[in-house]
Simulated scan of single mutants.
Amino acid sequence: MYGGHITDDWDRRTNATYLKVLIKPELLQPNFSLGPGFKSPDPSRFEYEQYKEYIEKKLPIESPQMFGMHPNAEIGYLTQQCETLFSTILDVQGGSSSGGGGKKDDGVMTQLTLLKSTTPADTNLMDVTAKASEKTPDQIVCLQECERMNILLGEIRRSLEDLRLGMTGALNITDQMEALSLSLQFNKVPASWEKFAYFSRKGLAAWFNDLIERTNQLAVWTQEMVTPISLCISYLFNPMSFLTAIMQKTAREQGLPLDDMVLQTNVTAIKGHEEVTVSAETGAYIHGLYLEGAAWELGGQGQEGYLIEQKQKELHPKLPVVNVIAVTAEKKKKIGQYQCPVYVTSMRGPTFVFTANLNMENEDSDPSKWILSGTCLLMSDD
């Protein structure tokens, strides 16, 4: 009904929840509230044509509440619609302008110069490899991240320098240079950069600031080849590799088979990663996750927090620091745990499964009845 078919278990669970909550015998009772301002008619007095006419004339304007959704769902939809509209307008314009392109070229050159001067330096892979003498799983992840970041930074510097030479007349303007120039004008990440980059839907300005933060984390990580006390998981090219490293490290330390290891996520009472002062006793601390479709309530003294309904106008509340540990499948907590996917961006593409405490009266209740059936986590807030 809303743009697709059931393609995975997450779709199936959400669909089953809607069916169990909405499709019930009470629907045929007179004056049953089908939604805000929409009552069920008396079935004994209605035939097919009368039902059709009633729906056409009495159906209220669509709203999130009609579908059991939070009002924030409409805010997100309208925001995305507005961004798509303006993006389409820019694409239709195609960067053309009446008269000469002097002002346009000056703006592109100014931005080009700024990006060139602020592009981080490459990581010296030889030094990093020498420091990683033990070759632990997390050190290997660090090396892989540095290698991929160097490739991206090299492409950024090369393309910006080529465009500068083209705009100054030292080189002929190519299609690739023209595409890069248009991307700089429209605040879009150039396609040649995306080819070597991580998944993201941010505009160029926010994307470049994010790039600098990612390189800063790698700089801290490579200084002594010690994993940061709390790692921003959304700053990695391949977040799953670090999570796999946690399982590998635990399996080696405890002499357990890797195939039997699973991840368990425990949301701590530490709201911001700046408050973390010591490394996790087991596993690792991570941050950089944002909720969609729910919010998080911190627990009291000595208590774990839990998922709650969204707050008005808070579309993507930040999740507290999470302690990710590796345990055997039989020891993983299941009672009172809500299982949801984690997405690299707000587009489809689950990275790993996250579990969190759910605030409910009966821990053994049917999971399909949990209201938060559409909750997911985002690796970043783009």
Rank of each mutant, 00 (worst) to 15 (best):
A73Y: 03
G95H: 02
F86W: 09
Q80M: 07
G102M: 11
L59C: 11
L78R: 09
E49H: 11
V108L: 01
G100W: 13
L90G: 01
A73P: 01
L90F: 09
Y48E: 14
H70P: 02
I61S: 08
Q81D: 09
N72T: 02
D91Y: 13
K52F: 07
T113V: 12
L85G: 02
T79H: 03
P71M: 00
T79Y: 08
F67L: 03
P60S: 01
G101P: 09
K57E: 09
G76E: 03
F86G: 00
G99P: 04
K52C: 08
Q65D: 12
Y48H: 15
D106L: 14
G107W: 03
P60Y: 01
G99S: 01
L59N: 09
E53V: 06
G102Y: 13
L114G: 06
Q81K: 11
K52T: 14
I89D: 06
D105Q: 06
M69R: 13
G68C: 06
Q50P: 14
Y51T: 05
G107M: 12
P60W: 03
Q81P: 10
T79N: 09
I75K: 08
L114C: 05
Q80S: 14
L90D: 04
F67K: 05
Q80T: 15
S96I: 12
L85T: 07
E83C: 06
L59K: 10
I75Y: 01
E56W: 07
P71S: 04
Q111L: 12
C82W: 11
T113F: 14
T88D: 13
H70C: 06
Q80C: 05
Q50V: 08
P64M: 02
G94T: 03
L78A: 06
Q81W: 11
D106V: 07
C82V: 09
G76M: 07
E56I: 12
A73R: 06
Q50K: 15
T110D: 09
K103F: 15
P71C: 01
